[in-house]
């Protein structure tokens, strides 16, 4: 997966994996609903960087088309998530995921 046509191609792969690690850490170790959405956003950024850096001189237009579509999808998912966060806050004045009462597995 390392791009052999880029100088220092391995740096881009390292950045992708670092973003994925930070994103998954944020989802699994944080309790506020908004932080979970921030974690999802960081994971998406990592994947976009993978798509663009891995197809550097040849497929760059197709890669840009894919990244544009991924960003549009992310906007819609974030908007729905934030709407649900506001809704949950209006119901019970708390945005802590440990307060979800029916987490009975």
């Amino acid at each position: 997966m390392a791009n052999n046509l880029l100088p220092y191609g391995w740096m881009y792969v390292y950045t992708v994996f670092a973003m994925l690690f930070i994103g998954f850490y944020c989802i699994f170790a944080r309790r506020s609903m908004i932080r979970l959405l921030i974690g999802l956003e960081i994971i998406s950024k990592g994947i976009c960087l993978l798509i663009i850096s891995g197809s550097y001189p040849q497929n760059i237009t197709t890669a840009q088309a894919l990244v544009i579509t991924v960003i549009v999808i992310e906007v819609c998912v974030m908007a729905v998530g934030l709407g649900l966060v506001i809704n949950a806050f209006r119901h019970s004045a708390s945005i802590d995921v440990r307060d979800f009462s029916n987490l009975k597995g």
Partner: peptide
């Protein structure tokens, strides 16, 4: 329930997208 479904399903989607990105690259 909708929020929990959203987060878990979005994690799954990011796995799938990561696989697709690997295939594309």
């Amino acid at each position: 329930g909708a929020f929990k479904y959203l987060v878990l399903s979005a994690i799954a989607s990011s796995f799938i997208l990561l696989g697709i990105a690997g295939v594309f690259v």
